[in-house]
Design a protein around this nucleic acid. Structure first.
Lengths: 228, 228, 228, 228
DNA sequence: AATGAATGAGGTTTCATTCAT
DNA sequence: CATGAATGAAACCTCATTCAT
């Protein structure tokens, strides 16, 4: 059995070799500016081999997206396990993870963004279905984390309860999204005012926390009682 | 002179004819999936003519981006002129413009996003320089609007003053960006919970306003003190 | 108008240039063993130009098939006009045309055969529809010629009338087909016995004529009267 | 010895397994549209194994052709043994076999036709020599059958003797060939006139028999006397 | 100013065949 | 014997761009 295991391992190695090469190129030049030929050269394999491992350029890319989202998920889920204290802290932790990810792996980030832009969506469902489905799963689980934090925050009366918790959850998601999305323009503004990314993000979370912070119970919207 | 004027007018007309055709196609199918051939057919002109008016496919696209950002700028500046009341209201007004734009002109929005994604950046500077520069100008002016609102808000003591106004401006920009970016995923979540886009956006601005609003220091939630 | 006419003529010339080059290669090596690259080289044009004139390798091939069948049709129709004498003679004339074609243009012949073999049929209907339809038209008209001869032969009581004229027509088509199909094997046999193709074909038509020749009218199958 | 025998048997089994799979695919989709990969999958073996048993895709195909022609030969030779009666009946019998084969094994038929079309001929002689030679042998033996019938028919004075028996033999071969070749076009005509294939073939042989039937001996061509 | 034929580099993909294990 | 990973040549096709008219 060890022999087939070794083969399995080697095959996985080759896959990684290809993925790594492809990642570098995609991250540097963008999906459209990279050819399978280049990927092959970078991986020191033949073009045919690339197509042996990945049916498509698209499939290869989506595999990378999947890797990215999986990585992000691990980071989030690790962080959530450690700090199971106050919802506020969890939220900030989550935000920190988001920022870390967006700084450490900007390539993955823009890959994920391209994937979600609708560029790849529906046509070739059958071919890439496997990975696509998995990506959606992770997305949903990530949403779950967020919702849990919000629900807990409201239950524990540390988050304001005059807002539908679901809406609050969604808005927090939107906001965190905006943090990940520190685009070149913003970056340029920061440079111009010599403000570090760390600083702005810190301020951002300070504001967000204060925004979410709890209110007196007398203000509680009766419709929302059920969530408490 | 009238004869050259007519020619000028006709030339401008042709340009518009092309831009309109290209817009429709780009907005429907995305930059990469539209060929110059198609654009020519849609504009009822020949491929050569397209290249006579636009050096490049890229230049043509950037021209459209410019149109989009100009349109956005007009909307914002119109809105700002009319409602020159309280900074809070101005802010909300601005948000509303943002949302209106993103709903009325989603095509321009994603064109702008693609442009800012770094896909078109540096290589062909010289060729597209003209338009690119203008786009940047509008971007900067838009930032200016925001900064003014924030500055005014702080001066009038309606915005919190415990935050660097520049940072506050940037963060507000980030947040408004996140609203424009109501992506498919968020949209899907909204549908699942039967929450309308209008509702979520209204809530969003309510929250944002409260976040930015000036506070008496005595109101601070003790749990949150550390963040201030 | 002369200017656009000239352009038209030149375009037609290019088409012919390509067709001629492709024909030579297809006839020499067979459809699958010829690449568009080769055709381009042979036509002294770029690959792109070939695809500008012909959407497909398939379309190019079918155009050649159409040329072949058109040529065949002209030959047949010319011959039929000249010799409007006895049906028997018409039949023999037709046979002679068939043989001439199969000897002069064996390339076209096998192209037509490949086309009819079902290799190209249904998948890309829309793309090659135009030519395909025309090919079918010619085929049908050719069948018409044959049917007319047979009908006339029966009416003039020079063909046997104890056979359903429709069946007779079909069989004659099958037989003439077999003449066109003098394949390598048969050819090899002829060489081995030092019999010329002319000789065997002459004999063939002698036999066929005697086979088709009329019978006493008393034998007429009553069911067939209507055709007379 | 039993052990090597078993191995031998198993090897033969594998061969058949491959041939059967390949046949099905070739017959369904045509030589060029079937890949070795597909064959391997269908045979539930690996690609490498296919190449172990058959040097080539071509060799594999030719093996199938050989199978087809062998099968045809068996059918003909069986039929000839049983009905050793009159040459006319033998001829009809032979025709019936031809038709049966073309209806029962259309796949083999078109494989044989492809093989004879010159597609595979000369280049790789050395590699496929063995099978090719055997195919030729069977072909020749089949011709022999035909020639014998004709010779006997003439000797027994039931076939016309005003025709060179060799020529007659060849023509009969051509004709029988035309029956095998009931191509889609003819088939379509038959359907349109609601004539069954059986009917047309019956009529065909009726006509052929009458065509071949004997003449008065006084008409005998003196040159042909030697054959009698 | 307008045309559209011509280009050719580049893209993705397929597949027969080899070979180390 | 059997496997299947690896190869790489060659296939078909697209399209932005140029240029003579």
């Amino acid at each position: 059995m060890t022999i087939s295991e070794r083969k399995e391992r080697e095959k996985e190695l080759r896959r990684m070799q290809i993925i790594t090469a492809a990642e570098n190129l995609f991250f540097r030049s963008g999906y459209d500016h990279v050819s399978m030929e280049e990927i092959a050269r970078a991986a020191e394999l033949s073009k045919g081999t690339i197509f042996f491992y990945f049916k498509n350029k698209e499939t290869l890319f989506i595999t990378i997206v999947l890797r990215g989202i999986r990585l992000f998920y691990e980071m989030v889920s690790d962080a959530c396990e450690k700090y199971s204290d106050s919802p506020s802290d969890q939220l900030r932790t989550m935000g920190e993870v988001v920022i870390m990810f967006s700084r450490e792996y900007p390539g993955y980030l823009s890959a994920i963004r391209l994937f979600k832009s609708g560029r790849f969506s529906l046509e070739k469902q059958s071919e890439t279905g496997e990975e696509t489905r998995e990506i959606l799963q992770y997305s949903r689980r990530l949403s779950g984390f967020m919702e849990n934090i919000v629900r807990e925050g409201i239950q524990k009366r540390v988050f304001r309860d005059d807002i539908d918790p679901i809406e609050l959850g969604i808005i927090i998601r939107m906001l965190t999204g905006s943090v990940m999305d520190i685009n070149p323009e913003i970056r340029w503004m920061l440079r111009e005012h010599t403000i570090s990314e760390e600083k702005i993000i810190d301020t951002f979370f300070t504001l967000m926390t204060s925004m979410i912070a709890g209110k007196k119970t007398s203000d509680i919207n009766p419709d929302m009682r059920e969530y408490l």
